[in-house]
């Protein structure tokens, strides 16, 4: 066992861990942060993404001992003063269905927007290439990230990449043929 001290979502934790303990298992099983999940064993799916000292990492591919002395933010810590704009945008743009990939997707998106506050559709798609979603086909996730980017830049702020398309038009009033791109 190796003693570690990690600050998780603002609180300090000191625990003994086996060196082989993955950060994600430490977070889930010892700290109780079960919002962060495990989706694969080859660091492909990104479901376990958290921020380690401010950078998005796959917590299934980091040992808990490597996080000793570090600061970890999980999905449970991003919205401590209400929801983070990226969380809101995923809801607003229907950027999730089953929700299993969502915590990792949101953490990866926040990280992307810190580097690139005004990404194009293609830049969002590349920026979240380390996260797999099986439900949404990604289109509404891309919308959500760009919507959040606009919000975070300050509402009416211009975008070099054009407007974010709305998630859907309301078809209630036009029942027969409602086509939207």
């Amino acid at each position: 066992m190796t003693p570690i001290t990690v600050r998780v979502d603002g609180a300090a934790y000191t625990d003994d861990v086996e060196p082989r303990t993955l950060l994600v298992h430490y977070l889930r099983e010892q700290v109780g942060k079960v919002g962060t999940v495990v989706g694969c064993d080859t660091s492909n799916c990104g479901a376990c993404t958290v921020h380690l000292d401010g950078e998005a990492v796959k917590s299934c591919t980091v040992l808990a001992v490597q996080a000793d002395g570090c600061e970890v933010t999980t999905i449970e810590g991003v919205g401590q003063d209400g929801l983070h704009p990226v969380q809101k945008a995923f809801h607003e743009m229907h950027g999730l269905q089953c929700g299993f990939c969502t915590p990792g997707m949101i953490m990866a998106s926040i990280d992307l927007l810190e580097d690139n506050p005004d990404p194009s559709d293609d830049e969002v798609r590349e920026g979240i290439e380390g996260n797999l979603c099986r439900c949404t086909g990604y289109q509404n996730i891309v919308r959500a990230v760009r919507h959040a980017a606009a919000e975070m830049r300050g509402g009416g702020g211009g975008s070099r990449n054009g407007h974010v398309s709305p998630a859907v038009v309301d078809t209630a009033a036009a029942p027969h043929v409602a086509v939207q791109a």
């Binding site: 079960v34 809801h91 038009v169 309301d170």
Partner: peptide
């Protein structure tokens, strides 16, 4: 007065899924 059927309601489910307050079996 607006009918609910046909409205682009944002999902009720999302509140727990976007915050990590989920009940996956493995939890």
């Amino acid at each position: 007065a607006a009918p609910e059927i046909g409205r682009a309601r944002r999902r009720k489910e999302d509140a727990r899924l976007i915050t990590g307050m989920t009940t996956w079996t493995d939890n």
